[in-house]
């Protein structure tokens, strides 16, 4: 019964959010049916479009997993945005400072740098929560801004690309760059990072549901005092889970720096970290759900990008509106219990 509702509720929320979003476009003077057609065509209409959708979905899988892992440990990670910045900066810094590392080794070094950069930025709020008792929500919000400031300093003062007008770091060595599958997806920057994301999702599933450590993490998330009674060190688990969450978000840097731009570009993330909250929520904090939700939001991101030139009054900002409406719908517990009650009442 619970799982039936659990599966249907996200779907209903997506439909509700999408319908409300399309209703908004009608207010703006567009034909919602036409908008929907543009969204579908531009996200899935060709191999190139599909490649772009998967490219956009990749960072969302990482940030969705990041939020989900923290959530399983009873923590709210609003800091994926800062963690992914540090992950990407880590990759870019290593790639720019050690450009000569040869190809089979370099991507591994890059992945490690992303994990360390993001992990560090997850460890801090984890430690603060576990050892100082300060709430991770505020801390991660604050650390997002600190990450933005520090990354801007590193980019502009330490690793600046002097050949570019844009605020970005020097390019990474050629060995770090991941190939594109251009025979399939054309010019879309689809890279092996997508498979890394799937692998990470599988890894999270194994860790959380198939290992003793994962059991401890979920135990702390579900009932900390019971977990403590069972001899689990909640503080240690929380630090670990938050570090892991940071590392997962940091892996966004792999797709962005090694798979796409070859450098750290300030402000490259259009709120991947925040959309990750929606992805985790919609995916009910399960790896498979996260992948499905990330694909959906990736398609939304690619689809809405086409609205800029395919429609008169609507732009890509529609994606934020729809995402927000989906989050509000899926999180409104009261809405669903009210509908259930009403349905029950009608049956009786």
């Amino acid at each position: 019964m619970e799982s039936w509702r659990g599966r249907l509720q996200p779907l209903a929320a997506v439909l509700l959010g999408l319908s409300l979003g399309l209703a908004v476009t009608a207010v703006a003077g567009e034909n919602p049916w036409n908008v929907l057609k543009v969204l579908a065509q531009s996200s899935l209409g060709s191999w190139y479009d599909l490649g772009m959708t998967l490219f956009y979905a990749t960072p969302l899988i990482f940030t969705g997993l990041s939020v989900a892992v923290a959530f399983q440990a009873g923590l709210f990670n609003i800091g994926a945005e800062g963690q992914l910045v540090f992950g990407a900066l880590g990759v870019a810094a290593v790639g720019a400072l050690a450009p000569g590392v040869p190809s089979p080794l370099a991507p591994l070094v890059g992945i490690l740098a992303a994990v360390v950069g993001g992990g560090l930025w997850g460890f801090i709020p984890g430690w603060l929560r576990a050892r100082r008792g300060s709430h991770e929500v505020i801390n991660t919000i604050m650390l997002n801004f600190v990450a933005a400031g520090l990354s801007s300093w590193v980019t502009l003062y330490l690793l600046r690309n002097m050949d570019s007008q844009n605020p970005e770091t020097r390019p990474v060595g050629a060995g770090y760059l991941l190939g594109h599958f251009s025979s399939v997806f054309g010019d879309a920057p689809f890279s092996g990072a997508f498979f890394l994301a799937l692998l990470a999702a599988f890894g999270v599933w194994v860790l959380l549901w198939k290992t003793p450590l994962g059991f401890e993490i979920r135990a702390v998330g579900q009932n900390e005092s019971a977990a403590r009674a069972a001899g689990i060190d909640g503080a240690r688990i929380r630090i670990l889970a938050m570090t892991l969450a940071g590392a997962l978000a940091g892996l966004v840097g792999v797709g962005e720096v090694m798979g796409n731009s070859g450098k750290f570009r300030m402000g490259f993330s259009p709120d991947f970290g925040f959309v990750g909250i929606a992805v985790a929520l919609l995916g009910r904090n399960r790896p498979v759900g996260v992948i499905a939700a990330a694909l959906l939001f990736g398609a939304l991101q690619k689809g809405t990008a086409a609205l800029d030139f395919e429609t008169e009054h609507v732009t890509r900002d529609l994606s934020s509106i729809i995402q927000a409406l989906v989050i509000l719908s899926v999180s409104a517990e009261g809405l669903w219990s009210w509908m259930k009650r009403r349905k029950g009442g009608m049956g009786a």
């Binding site: 709120d271 909250i277 900002d317 995402q323 989050i327 509000l328």
Partner: peptide, 14 residues
Amino acid sequence: IVAGTAINLLAAGI
């Protein structure tokens, strides 16, 4: 927290 995040996202889109 979730709803607050969504409201911010909504404003940024609207």
